[in-house]
Nucleic acid binder design. Structure first.
Lengths: 243, 243
DNA sequence: CACTGTCTTGCGGGTTCCCGCAACTGATGT
DNA sequence: ACATCAGTTGCGGGAACCCGCAAGACAGTG
């Protein structure tokens, strides 16, 4: 059995190395990569099927690396080991995980034992292991009324990128009014209408830009989501430059 | 000599502990705190005059802890040891450092030797040590034309919080038009007017909300700055509820 | 089939934003 | 005293935003 570690912090890397060799004595090779790019390369060249990786790395964060790795070998088992329980991360991962692949999401703050259990469950039993905190967040954001539908999420990203209603409409193939409807429900779900639990709409606020920071503070959006979206946007803008 | 470590990551904490005992053999006591609150308490109760602390912690991040610690004992020497070189952090620190206090800002990615040198320089020689990357950023943001004046920065924070022009004017005691002037220069300095180095203003963009994310991606604003500002805002809103 | 709930689109209009233009203040330098 | 330059304020207007209202589309249900 071979395991690949992709993690930029050297301390965390060596800690992981040690925990893995404890939890998986049958492991014969533990390789390390310090960012997403060399991680992708090692996974491809040495055909790793078991990977533990961090999410917040630069250049090339964990989600992007996982995307290309899973694209090349969909049966790879990946354990994400991250500091944060951002909804942006969870959403990003659930968008790219191939059906049938074993994966896990464990917070760095969990105990040694939990981490070891997760390692065995994923790499030996091919089970999926999601930390309780993450699951909780998935439920909360999925079950309740303030769930974000995929289309609402897209529009949220677009206003964060700073697009006008009109441009969003063009990009997402909607009418102007539909975009604005989505905006209204986004504002409502983000609770942007009033700072202090008031009922009415607070005339002190510009809902649009407040929505952006609220989404960021809630972890609904994060740095790398935005960078990725920015890239997609600029290529779209080039394609539609004439229009 | 006694040193206090304030750092939430246990691995980084023990690493710091080890490096400190190496670099400062004359040190007789090394205490550890895992967040800003207990850090403040320990510093107060046991009268630490030398502190190494992380910036990104919750609850109570490094800057807030440093503020209260310096408030109680302005001669404390503090070495900030952080992952990021955000302008928000640098700005936040330079706002609270008492005149004459020795402090340092070192990135976690620097080598052992540099960290050890910094420790001796600050805690033994009472010098200030700022990592080259940070200095570079200070220069870039201060020397060039795209420096942000303090007043512009305030307005930037306000639009990130989602205030309307009118409310910003009331809060900052300006006319409406002055606020908008500041906005214009902010937009210009952030380079929000066009995605692809065009000259004119891109009608696809809503400059206001784009400015927020650009500022965040550049590290001009960050999570904890915004939380702090949000708190100040809500108390201001309460005071001026009737007006 | 009728009923209901969700989603979309158009219309109209009040409000806010964005900004060019021009006048005024105040500080600085020669 | 005069010129200059940065910063502030008012005015006016075009564009964008926010949203209530109502009409249509479409799926699921009894």
């Amino acid at each position: 059995m071979k395991v690949l570690i992709i993690e930029d912090d050297p301390l965390h890397r060596s800690y992981l190395h040690q925990v893995i060799s404890n939890a998986l004595p049958e492991c014969t090779l533990i390789a390390e990569a310090e960012d997403g790019l060399v991680g992708e390369r090692l996974a491809r060249e040495q055909r790793f099927e078991r990977i533990v990786m961090d999410l917040n790395m630069s250049p090339r964060n964990g989600i992007e690396a996982a995307r290309t790795i899973w694209h090349e070998r969909p049966d790879t088992s990946i354990l994400f080991w991250s500091n944060y329980a951002d909804e942006a991360n969870v959403r990003g991962i659930s968008r790219i995980v191939p059906s049938g692949a074993a994966y896990g999401y464990v917070l760095k703050s969990t105990s040694d034992e939990r981490l070891q259990l997760a390692l065995r469950a994923i790499f030996v039993e091919s089970q999926c292991v999601i930390d309780r905190e993450i699951r909780g967040m998935q439920q909360r954001s999925l079950g309740h009324a303030d769930e974000f539908s995929e289309s609402e999420y897209e529009v949220l990203v677009d206003i964060a990128l700073g697009l006008t209603d009109k441009t969003i409409a063009k990009r997402r193939h909607l009418s102007l009014r539909s975009v604005q409807n989505r905006l209204q429900s986004i504002y409502e779900k983000l609770g942007v209408y009033s700072a202090a639990e008031g009922v009415g709409r607070d005339p002190n606020f510009n809902f649009r830009s407040r929505a952006v920071t609220v989404a960021l503070m809630r972890g609904l959006l994060n740095h790398s989501t935005l960078e990725r979206a920015e890239g997609e946007l600029s290529s779209w803008l080039k394609r539609h430059a004439g229009a």
